[in-house]
Design a binder for these strands. Structure first.
Lengths: 158, 158
DNA sequence: TTCTAGTATATTGTACGCAATTAATTAGGC
DNA sequence: GCCTAATTAATTGCGTACAATATACTAGAA
């Protein structure tokens, strides 16, 4: 008799817990950022730029973990809304420099204050919040370093 | 002088940790499920159906946390690939019953075996895995129950 | 200098994810 | 039985995500 295969239940899966939590946070931020007409990926793009502006699309992408296929249209929308400016580099015309607009610089404090108020609703103290984040990041590193392409599929063809 | 606003750094954010981990898991499963030509949302749909089939679109959506706007086209693709069958209910024609195809029933064991092999790459023992999942689910519940719409924005207009 | 390999961004195509709307159907009150 | 409210999917529109490809440009080798 063959070795019995370990069962997989949806609600036991770490991936599903992360997938669900991430979507819920997205929804949370959709409401929290509504006064500013920002989406969550747009917000983290601003977070990265508030820490360091200007950046090239590539540098920005390495911070938020998004490639040009996502960032190019996203940044164009943000440019239309007046959050960022896009300027092709004069020395190296392959690069596009993304910088904060005055509107984004001015709004930073109001956005931080409002988002912080919303975050208070979570009812997580700083220690719990940090521990949760560290736990997630620990798992995240493990996932990042695992490469399922190494596992050859030996079952029946589908 | 106004109260200084607490700073928000991208890499300190729990939301960003979850967002990143979720995307990495998506990539992980894209590779793990490649032999079966399944995407991650299609996989969790199968997981739900393996536990309970048939289900209406609504029931299925309540398990995987997706609405008809996502599920209808996803299920049509899965029907085309031969994973599921879609049949409008005879008693209540508003409902569509989704059931596993024979192919999906037959492939279950091979998929579980291969996914389990890939999961071993994470190098997380059962206890660590469960604790991590529980931590994520704890935060997930907090996020679910927080409603930022309750917080009135009092800053400057954007 | 000219060729070539490499780099940076943009584009294309496919698949989600979800709010809002529509269409079809059912069920409850009278 | 008839009207209305509620329910269930499907559709539409917009915004991600990302692999694969295309395009433009740079820099180094011969």
């Amino acid at each position: 008799m063959a070795t019995p295969t370990k069962n997989i239940l949806l609600d036991d899966q770490l991936c599903f817990a992360l997938y669900t939590a991430s979507k819920r946070f997205n929804h949370f931020y959709a409401d929290a950022l509504a006064p500013f007409k920002l989406t969550y990926p747009q917000y983290i793009t601003l977070l990265a730029l508030w820490e360091n502006s200007p950046m090239t699309v590539r540098e920005l992408g390495s911070h938020v973990n998004l490639d040009s296929g996502t960032l190019t249209p996203l940044l164009k929308r943000m440019q239309t809304q007046g959050w960022v400016e896009r300027k092709r580099d004069e020395d190296d015309e392959r690069q596009v420099n993304i910088s904060l607009s005055q509107k984004a610089i001015d709004a930073k404090n109001d956005i931080f204050a409002h988002v912080n108020s919303c975050m208070d609703l979570l009812g997580m103290d700083d220690k719990t919040y940090a521990e949760t984040r560290n736990t997630v990041n620990f798992a995240s590193d493990r996932i990042k370093n695992a490469d399922p392409k190494k596992i050859k599929y030996t079952g029946n063809e589908v």
